[in-house]
Structure formats: structure tokens, C-alpha cells
Nucleic acid binder design. Structure first.
Lengths: 224, 224
DNA sequence: CCGATTATGCGATCTTGTTCGCGTTGCCCC
DNA sequence: GGGGCAACGCGAACAAGATCGCATAATCGG
């Protein structure tokens, strides 16, 4: 349904991938540089956080000037989005690995968020900076993050759809609307966590509570 | 329940309000300056948007250097948060003005979001930048925005609580969790709107759909 | 009136993400 | 093997938010 994020080390850089000249010694060097940049950024983000990491520092660790980074990346945030994409992929894989399609829908949803959270917990910045990126609507990276989000929502919708065919859901529930609601509620909880309002376990139980609420509904049974 | 945002033109600036010397010609001058800054910022934000507005421009229009602004404000975003606080206050007032406490809870919630959206639509940046502010957990302004959000959530909880006593809600619904869910779902929809993924009316109907969903619940009636 | 205190303003400066123009280098084609 | 073409890297420079030290002025205690 959605385009897979390109995690292969193809040149995802500004210029087109130059299909005319498929490979090249220069391109090889470029790939190595990109790899060094990615590693340096990844390490520094974990050491000092996103905002504490300067492009000059990344460049220094990657053995190049700060401006050269822009040969390979369009913005600082793109470096983090790469990580986000990988982490999401990993989360999906882990989830699917032990996913029981016959389990109650609500349980599957909860387990998905738990799996995702296990990974997210290691890099608290990720969620927050991704969210921040979406607040720059003109930037390309915003659309990239939104696409990633949409993909997660798609997976949630898939889970829900599985429940629908098993009559596990209310009959007239719009699966996509529901998936979006689940996603945003979880994001909100994680934002509180990132701001130190709740602990990590608090965040988890908030998410669980919200999922339960969404399944049960706010309204009184059968009335209005 | 929550501390009211201080909208009175008391010096909310970095230094303490200097209670020892309650007023002063200088303080008077400062108040006027703050007012000019606020007006200039407000106008420029509407003309060019938040990111398109430079502090030097604000300073120029307010008749002072850019650095002087920091005597009255701790960051650029704080200028916008002031607006957000006012706008929320206005939204609450408008809502309460025509609020029918006997109306069905769901209808009240929907009307609240509509009222809020009427105002928000005039300054599309507001929601987004406020959200962005919360992605800088170290900044004071983040906590300020979170407090404002918490206040909105509180109002929603109040509405829900009203419904609970009338048996309008499911018996075991945690009012605060539900309010939070409503809030975050609406924020998510507005984020899509700000990113041009949906039109304003689309955003409104998305919110309505989400509210309906939250009231009805995702799960099948009475089962699991 | 005097010194101390303090709110305000200013310009220089810093920081950091980002852009720009230039030079270098490996590759292809003739 | 020479010219052309990109990819790459670099240092200078820019933009804009923020900080700093200094200057000014208003007030107060004495």
C-alpha cells in the first residue's frame, strides 16, 4: 500500500541515483562516506542526544567537514529519520515474528505497541524529533516522517482489519480512522514521557489504558 | 485544578516581578515595550508565519533591537505561546457561552472542538508550533505548552465528568484518560491539516469521525 | 544630592544549520 | 591521452536565534 522506505544503501542522496552509470569508484567512496556519517551520527545522537549533536561534530567523527555532509543528506533531521525508518522496520519484524493472528485484536494491538516501545525506549529522542520534523511542513523530511507514520498506521489498520473479518470489531468501525486514533494516542503518551511527565513504565501503561479505552469506547453501552 | 495562565500584563519576564518595589516608571516603560513586541509579533506571525518571522523584524517593528526582546521574553516561541494561551481562553469562553450542559456529552465534545477549530483556523501555525515547542523538553516553553494542553484536557474531562454523572458514559471509563485520548486524536488530525494532507473541512470531519469512534469504541459490543 | 540598585536597551558576538563557489579526482568517450 | 562530466570535499560565508558586557536611566535609602 505504501512505498517501502529504502533502507538499502543505495544513494538516497540529493541527486538522482544516476541510473545511466550504475556504479563507479566515486560512488563507492560516497557510499563509504555515507556509512561513516551514519555511524557517527548514530553514535553521537545516543551520546549527546539530537539537539546536543552538532553537524561539525558529526563531520569530525566521520572524517570530513560539516558542509560535506550535505553531499549525502539534505538536513540534519534526515539523519535521524534514517534511524527511525530502520527502527520501525525492526519493530514490525519483531512484532510479526511472534504475532498470533488468531489472538484477540486488542491483545495484538497492545503487543504491537509494546514491541515498538521496547525499541523506542533505547533512543528516546527519536519519537520526539520525528514529531518535531512534522512541524516543518515545508521541509521534505516532514513528509518522509509522515509517510513512515502512515505506514505504521497501515499496519495497525491491517491488524484491525483482521479483527473485523472475525467480527472482533464493531460492525461500522472505520478501520483507518481507528488505526489513526490509536497511533496518535500513543504518540501523545510518548510525548509526555519524553518531557519527563511520566516514566517509561508509566508511558506504557498509559498506552495500554488508552488502547483499552478506545476498544471499549467512551459512551455508555447501546445508548446514544 | 490548574494554574491559570497569567494573561494580565504583569511582567512575566525573566526576572522576578520585583515585589519589593511594586511599580516604577521603568516598569511602566517595560510594559509598554512588551505590548509593542507582542503586537508586532502577532502581526508578523499572521503575515509571514512563525518561521518566516525573524526576531530582528519583530524588533524593528516594535522599535527596538532584536536582542532587547530577550529582556521581555525568553525565546521566540514564547511569543507564540502567549497567543496560544489567549486563543484557548477565547475558545473556552466562546464554548461556555453557548454550552448546554444538558446536551448529550458527545455533542458537547464535538462542539468544543468545533469552537476551538474556528479560532485555530485563523492562525494555522499555532497548533503546529505549539506542538513543536513540546519537542524541546529542556526548554521552559515546552512545559508551558504542556500546561496549556493539560488545561484543555481538563476542560474536556469536565465535560466528560458531566456526562458520567448523567450515566451518559460507560461506567468504568477513566475520564482523564478519555480526555487525553480525545485531545491527542484532535492534535493528530490538525497536524495532518497543517501538513496539507487534508483541507480544513477535512480536518474537521476527521475530528468528528474520531470523536464518534472514541465514543462508540472499536471493539464489538459487549464482547471481550 | 549621592551612591546603590535595577529595569531597559544596544551592538557585538557566538552558535549552528545551511548554502556557495571552487578545486580535486576518478571515470567515460573520442 | 585529453576533454568533459559528475561526485566529492573543503573553507568561507550566511541566517537567525540567542548571549554578553556595557551604557542609560529611573528609583530609593540616607
Amino acid at each position: 500500500m505504501f512505498a517501502l522506505p529504502q533502507t538499502t544503501p543505495q544513494p538516497p542522496s540529493p541527486g538522482r541515483p544516476s541510473v545511466l552509470r550504475p556504479d563507479d569508484g566515486r560512488l563507492e567512496r560516497g557510499r563509504r562516506s555515507r556509512e561513516r556519517i551514519r555511524e557517527a551520527a548514530r553514535a553521537l545522537f545516543r551520546e549527546r542526544g539530537f539537539d546536543g549533536t552538532t553537524l561539525r561534530a558529526i563531520g569530525a567523527r566521520a572524517g570530513m567537514g560539516a558542509s560535506s555532509i550535505y553531499r549525502h543528506v539534505r538536513s540534519k533531521e534526515e539523519l535521524l529519520v534514517q534511524e527511525l525508518a530502520e527502527l520501525q522496520e525492526e519493530a514490525w519484524n519483531r512484532f510479526r515474528l511472534h504475532d498470533d493472528r488468531e489472538a484477540p485484536t486488542r491483545a495484538r494491538v497492545r503487543r504491537f505497541f509494546q514491541t515498538q516501545h521496547d525499541l523506542l525506549a533505547e533512543v528516546p529522542d527519536l519519537t520526539v524529533i520525528a514529531l518535531r520534523a512534522t512541524t516543518y511542513p515545508h521541509a521534505r523530511v516532514a513528509r518522509r516522517v509522515l509517510a513512515l507514520n502512515e505506514r505504521t498506521i497501515g499496519l495497525l489498520a491491517e491488524i484491525l482489519q483482521g479483527g473485523r473479518v472475525r467480527r472482533d470489531l464493531g460492525g461500522d468501525v472505520d478501520v483507518l480512522v481507528a488505526a489513526r486514533a490509536l497511533f496518535h494516542v500513543a504518540s501523545g503518551a510518548r510525548l509526555s514521557w519524553a518531557n519527563g511527565l511520566v516514566t517509561e513504565v508509566g508511558c506504557r501503561s498509559d498506552i495500554d489504558a488508552s488502547v483499552d479505552l478506545l476498544f471499549r469506547g467512551i459512551g455508555a453501552d447501546e445508548t446514544r
